[in-house]
């Protein structure tokens, strides 16, 4: 059985992978809420509960999960990339930003 990632909402450009031994180059299955699935390959090890990109996301573009923005890309992201604090940033509670 392939490792399974879950896409919470059809608008999402990321999915959450639930596998404890995911490795670069591993084939996984991405399932949506209705149960339909597609296959893809992950580019880096993605820890249990972490996100991977489902399509290319350009630097500055929103990361979408639950159908809503959860922040923005701080680098260009490829499908299958691990998406986390190294390549995305929150847009809220940013006391470090001078003026929004």
């Amino acid at each position: 059985m392939k490792a399974m990632a879950l896409q919470c909402n059809p608008k999402d450009n990321v999915a959450v992978l639930f596998d404890e031994n995911a490795f670069a180059g591993m084939e996984i299955e991405v399932r949506d809420k209705a149960g339909a699935s597609t296959e893809m390959t992950i580019n880096q090890p993605v820890p249990f509960g972490h996100k991977l990109a489902l399509r290319p996301i350009a630097k500055g573009e929103d990361i979408i999960k639950y159908g809503e923005s959860i922040g923005m890309a701080t680098a260009d992201i490829q499908p299958g990339d691990h998406v986390h604090v190294h390549n995305m940033d929150s847009k809220r509670g940013r006391g470090d930003w001078k003026e929004e």
Partner: peptide, 24 residues
């Protein structure tokens, strides 16, 4: 306090668990 609230929220444990931002 003039900083990014990350580490306070989400917490280091949340981040290790895969939550990347307060929005998420």
């Amino acid at each position: 306090l003039g900083c990014d609230m990350r580490k306070g929220q989400p917490t280091p444990g949340n981040i290790a668990g895969g939550l990347s931002s307060i929005e998420e």
